[in-house]
């Protein structure tokens, strides 16, 4: 009996040792979403690809660490970072005040505005009055969701678990409009077959009060060393052209933003 308990305790101790080694040593686990093309998506054979994924790999290389990607639904992406399922999030996560209460961010690695998308040729204004009574889809728990709830109280806001589900429903005719990051919806929807007949309307939405200062790498609070290592690596890949190479693979202009 006693032996069993000691063995169990030893096993536990080893697990703890292993998990803390993960954070300090050379093995780094990175949480990605995998349902946000072209930033992160899964190919038919299950490999994770996309801008976020390539950036993650480039950053790891610069930091001299081996990285493992962990796929995670958006809904649980911050809780599971705090639960130590992975050590950092590279998932197009915008740096906002609300999120800073929970996690620390590196410097941004890109910054693009959000825009509304609807059927081609609609003449709606992208204001609360213009969208009053319209059904607007958005990904739950995103900056766009908070922005719609705060600034568009008269629109009928439908929250979805992933951006892809919102694309399915606007294509099916269930939504009048969606609000998404302009690049994500451009590459992930408008330029695909499903997005034929849909287009942007209205202007850019990027009020820093809601949209923050661009997308950064999120780490647990108190891990300044890891955070600063990511910031340094971002500056390095900006400087040595790696960033530009990845950028041009997906987009035809520099998405780092001003």
């Amino acid at each position: 009996m006693f032996k069993k308990i000691t063995m169990a305790a030893a096993g536990l101790a080893m697990t703890f040792a292993a998990s803390s080694a993960m954070a300090d040593g050379h093995m780094l686990k990175i949480g990605v979403e995998g349902a946000y093309p072209p930033f992160s998506e899964k190919t038919a054979d299950g490999t994770l690809v996309g801008f976020d994924v390539d950036i993650a790999m480039a950053l790891c290389e610069k930091m001299g660490k081996k990285c493992e990607l962990v796929e995670q639904d958006w809904d649980g992406i911050i809780p599971n970072l705090l639960n130590k399922k992975y050590d950092a999030i590279i998932a197009s996560m915008s740096i906002t005040e609300e999120r800073k209460k929970k996690v620390d961010f590196s410097e941004k690695y890109y910054n693009t505005p959000s825009r509304f998308v609807a059927k081609e040729g609609v003449d709606w204004a992208d204001t609360n009055e213009g969208l009053a009574g319209k059904t607007v889809g958005v990904q739950r728990g995103t900056i766009q969701h908070d922005y719609l709830l705060a600034v568009y109280p008269d629109a009928d806001v439908k929250p979805y678990g992933t951006a892809e589900e919102a694309y399915l429903d606007i294509e099916a005719g269930r939504l009048d409009a969606i609000l998404v990051d302009s690049l994500a919806v451009d590459g992930g929807f408008l330029k695909t077959d499903a997005g034929k007949g849909f287009a942007f309307f209205g202007g850019d939405h990027s009020d820093p009060k809601y949209f923050g200062d661009g997308a950064g790498v999120a780490v647990r609070k108190g891990e300044e060393e890891l955070r600063d290592a990511f910031t340094k690596a971002i500056q390095e890949i900006r400087a040595d052209g790696t960033y530009e190479k990845i950028n041009m693979k997906y987009f035809d202009f520099d998405i780092y933003g001003g």
Binding site: W74, D75, G76, I78, P79, N80, L82, N83, E98, R99, K102, V103, R140, G141, H145, D146, P159
Partner: peptide
């Protein structure tokens, strides 16, 4: 259940 999920995701909490 949707209300619970909305609140969880608004404040980045799990349960």
């Amino acid at each position: 259940f949707g209300a619970a999920k909305t609140i969880n995701s608004r404040y980045y909490v799990s349960f």
